[in-house]
Amino acid sequence: MIEDTVFKHLRTMLKREHALPVQSCRVSQPVQRPWGRTYRLVEWTTATDAPSHRCVVPAEFTDTEIAQLVATHVPGRVYADLAR
């Protein structure tokens, strides 16, 4: 399964580059839209952040490319609903 190979690549990359400590990573099956390219949804969690991070990638991305994308992610601003 692609999730297993992506996570395996992440473990080797993160040891080598000392990047974000990724705890889990999920990759969806390819989704075909009525227009445009087929895509996959990638979702991952880190030990330091509470919410999960999500990204849409083209379906033809390899497991190595997805792992590189997750490993090089720079967390941005988190918007919270303060109206609750």
Score class of each variant (00 low, 15 high):
residue 19 A to V: 07
residue 19 A to P: 01
residue 19 A to R: 14
residue 20 L to T: 07
residue 21 P to Q: 13
residue 21 P to E: 15
residue 22 V to C: 05
residue 22 V to T: 03
residue 23 Q to P: 14
residue 23 Q to N: 15
residue 24 S to L: 13
residue 25 C to N: 03
residue 26 R to D: 09
residue 26 R to Q: 12
residue 27 V to R: 00
residue 28 S to A: 03
residue 28 S to N: 01
residue 30 P to S: 08
residue 31 V to T: 03
residue 31 V to R: 04
residue 33 R to I: 08
residue 33 R to L: 13
residue 34 P to N: 15
residue 35 W to K: 14
residue 35 W to S: 11
residue 36 G to I: 02
residue 36 G to N: 03
residue 36 G to A: 02
residue 37 R to Q: 10
residue 37 R to I: 13
residue 37 R to H: 08
residue 37 R to E: 04
residue 39 Y to R: 12
residue 39 Y to Q: 11
residue 39 Y to D: 13
residue 39 Y to K: 10
residue 40 R to W: 02
residue 40 R to K: 08
residue 41 L to I: 12
residue 41 L to S: 09
residue 44 W to P: 00
residue 44 W to T: 00
residue 45 T to L: 10
residue 46 T to R: 04
residue 46 T to K: 04
residue 46 T to D: 07
residue 46 T to P: 06
residue 46 T to W: 05
residue 47 A to F: 05
residue 47 A to W: 04
residue 49 D to Y: 09
residue 49 D to Q: 09
residue 50 A to K: 05
residue 52 S to N: 13
residue 53 H to K: 14
residue 53 H to G: 07
residue 54 R to W: 11
residue 54 R to N: 07
residue 55 C to I: 05
residue 55 C to K: 12
residue 55 C to V: 05
residue 56 V to K: 04
residue 56 V to W: 13
residue 59 A to Q: 04
residue 59 A to V: 03
residue 59 A to C: 04
residue 60 E to M: 14
residue 60 E to I: 09
residue 61 F to T: 10
residue 61 F to A: 14
residue 61 F to D: 11
residue 61 F to H: 09
residue 62 T to R: 05
residue 62 T to M: 07
residue 62 T to F: 01
residue 62 T to G: 10
residue 63 D to H: 01
residue 63 D to C: 03
residue 64 T to V: 12
residue 64 T to M: 10
residue 64 T to Y: 06
residue 64 T to N: 06
residue 65 E to I: 06
residue 65 E to C: 07
residue 65 E to F: 01
residue 65 E to A: 12
residue 66 I to Y: 02
residue 67 A to R: 00
